[in-house]
Design a protein around this nucleic acid. Sequence first.
DNA 1: GTCTATAGGGTGATAGAC
DNA 2: GTCTATCACCCTATAGAC
Lengths: 207, 207
Amino acid sequence: MVNKKDDNQTEKAILEAADKVFTQKGFAAARMEDIAQEAGINRALLHYYFRSKDKMFDLIFQQRVSIFFSGLGQIMHSEKPLIEKIQAIVEHEITILLAHPYLPIFVLQELNQNPHRMLAIAENAGAHPSLLLKKFSVEVRAEIKAGTIRETDPAQLFMSIMGMAIYPFVARPVVKIILEKDDVGFESVMLQRKKEITDFIIHALKP
Amino acid sequence: MVNKKDDNQTEKAILEAADKVFTQKGFAAARMEDIAQEAGINRALLHYYFRSKDKMFDLIFQQRVSIFFSGLGQIMHSEKPLIEKIQAIVEHEITILLAHPYLPIFVLQELNQNPHRMLAIAENAGAHPSLLLKKFSVEVRAEIKAGTIRETDPAQLFMSIMGMAIYPFVARPVVKIILEKDDVGFESVMLQRKKEITDFIIHALKP
DNA sequence: GTCTATAGGGTGATAGAC
DNA sequence: GTCTATCACCCTATAGAC
């Protein structure tokens, strides 16, 4: 226990580097050399800490998926009234995606190639994906019955919410060109978008 | 010109195979061997027809982006009234994506890694991306001024339309689990979704 | 713990026979 | 045009010195 330099210092550096490289390039295009350079260390060290590229990737990927789902699960199962809940979802998604720009395209791309990974990981994260909609659906139907919102299919509504919030980040390079914005401009548009989406949905749901 | 077997028969087979493999795995993960097998031929033949993996990919990618944008451009620049135009966009996107399930995640993933490719290709396709919004914006503002729709930012509206239509396909594996559907069920939900989205937008835009 | 050197396997591309 | 054989390189992983 005497001669170790910064034990979990380098481990942390590696994890950050791996996250950056994997997230930006995807598993196949990412090379161990890229990660080592990004972390300022040697390739062999990566294997010393994490054995293999696959093991490293699984770790990173699981973390990323958790970010994507854990917060969402809490909101979905909370006791807020429907409109507030929708507002919270939108704010949460956009806030997270502003902090992690490459997150959704990375997760969705890797998931598309390995759909089975999804279940195991998401359940680990505590958010049974198939249960996400259950409570939400009940609440939507209750509001419809009470006449406070228009007749709508809960699943379709949920897809609309997620699509409006997440899609611009997935299509970021296209959006930047079409809107003629740089990164700063893009982020400012996404900040406005929080209120824009919520208003849009509230009006769309009016009876 | 006597002994050649099926000249553009194999070429066509290769293109189809390349499209399938590249679209499903992305450039980095796709191997020439995969494509050759899928086409029922030999690796060397791929190089005989298309020289290199890069050249092959560029070709496929350009075609895919064209599918994505060419039809959209026509609709955006047409003379339909606003609501009809929005309806046409939604129907067009969902129809195309039902026919090409892996298209958006593929295009968006590769674009994220090579944003510069975007411009050259999209302009080739005849749809200046930065002009896509111009006419649409004017029309939206006209309707607002006429009092037929609510005050809305055209760019935000456009992102909402595209997000609602495209996102479920990008997140297809997640959606299938959350909605507990198989492929057939997913497609039927997306068919319903055409009307769902249009209604949603019309209500959201009511003054 | 961290490095250098190298093994071992895979992949894109070409040469050359048919 | 289509195949087999092979080259040359790159990348993951490990062995071994410090």
